[in-house]
Design a protein around this nucleic acid. Structure first.
Length: 280
DNA sequence: CCTGAAACCTGTCTGC
DNA sequence: TGCAGACAGGTTTCAG
């Protein structure tokens, strides 16, 4: 499911609240439940409980597609991968009876105020790490696309240092942190670049336009609370503003040509054959 | 260094 | 209706 805008929306709602969603900052951990062992990468059920019980949530943030939950002494990193989601809900009903967890719930953290944070993940690809040095896990990530420190000049140098198809390169989290399949296709169409264009062939102008396009689609995605498709991820509206993604067979909104769907790096890829020509 | 295939998982949708 | 096959927002690992 989630790419940068969806993860940003979720982490922001956990930090600040949104649409009645309860923020978790300042809540104290009462108990933890690990329902699918492999969700927790670098520790186990017992140690998670021993570490977290009693600790208070200091803040919730994001780096790339990782959600960062900062406790007093430890940090919980969560990666939602394809189908993960987080929700905050009461753990007991009006009669003080426990509310049973749902199908596909993998991890739950009960707080002393009667609420709980639940990690639900149908496909079991999602992962969580408990650590005191989050940088050990996050240090491999490339720059944040929305960070002003990533200048057009630097982006051009990054692209030229590689000789890779541009779309798989954008999806490479060590190159740039947070891009996923939807926003990559959207950004490449906006920048009029073929997804298989080699990165070292981009001119300075094309590099600058690509960075501008990436920022444009990500910012719009964040404004619209992300992209929602069928049963995965709710509350977003960017799916109603897509230019190419999932629009194969339909006319390009710019030139009217039929949007094509091909595979690039094993990922379904949508582009306009007229607007996004492969250049030498 | 770069590319493609396979693996990790469950659910939905399509076509015969 | 049933059932096989394709496909899914992500990442890692391995072979060539």
């Amino acid at each position: 499911m989630p790419e940068l805008p969806e993860v940003e929306t979720i982490s922001h709602s956990l930090q600040c609240g949104r649409n009645g969603i309860c923020p978790i900052v300042a809540k104290q951990v009462e108990e933890t439940h690990l329902l699918w062992k492999r969700t927790l990468v670098n520790t186990n059920d017992k140690k998670l409980r021993e570490h977290l019980v009693g600790q208070i949530v200091q803040s919730v943030g994001r780096r790339g597609k990782f959600i960062i939950i900062d406790f007093d002494n430890d940090v919980l990193l969560i990666h939602l991968r394809m189908s993960g989601d987080l929700r905050v809900e009461p753990s007991r009903d009006k009669n003080n009876q426990p509310i049973v967890l749902q199908k596909h719930d993998r991890l739950a953290i009960d707080f002393t105020d009667g609420y709980r944070l639940v990690f639900n993940d149908t496909r079991k690809f999602g992962r969580a790490w408990l650590t005191q040095n989050p940088n050990e896990i996050l240090c491999e990530l490339g720059p944040e696309p929305l960070d002003p420190a990533l200048t057009p000049e630097r982006f051009y140098l990054m692209l030229n240092a590689k000789k890779r198809q541009i779309k798989p390169l954008l999806l490479d989290q060590t190159f740039l942190a947070g891009m996923g399949n939807i926003y990559s296709d959207e950004a490449l169409h906006l920048a009029r670049l073929h997804p298989q264009q080699l990165s070292n062939t981009l001119t300075k102008e094309q590099s600058r336009d690509l960075l501008t396009a990436i920022r444009s689609v990500l910012q719009k995605g964040i404004e619209l609370n992300g992209t929602s498709f069928d049963w995965v991820y709710r509350g977003g509206d960017f799916q109603n503003h897509l230019r190419v993604y999932h629009r194969d067979g339909q006319p390009c909104l710019v030139c009217g040509s039929i949007i094509q769907r091909i595979y690039v790096g094993q990922r379904g890829t949508h582009f306009c054959p007229r607007c996004q020509k492969l250049m030498d």
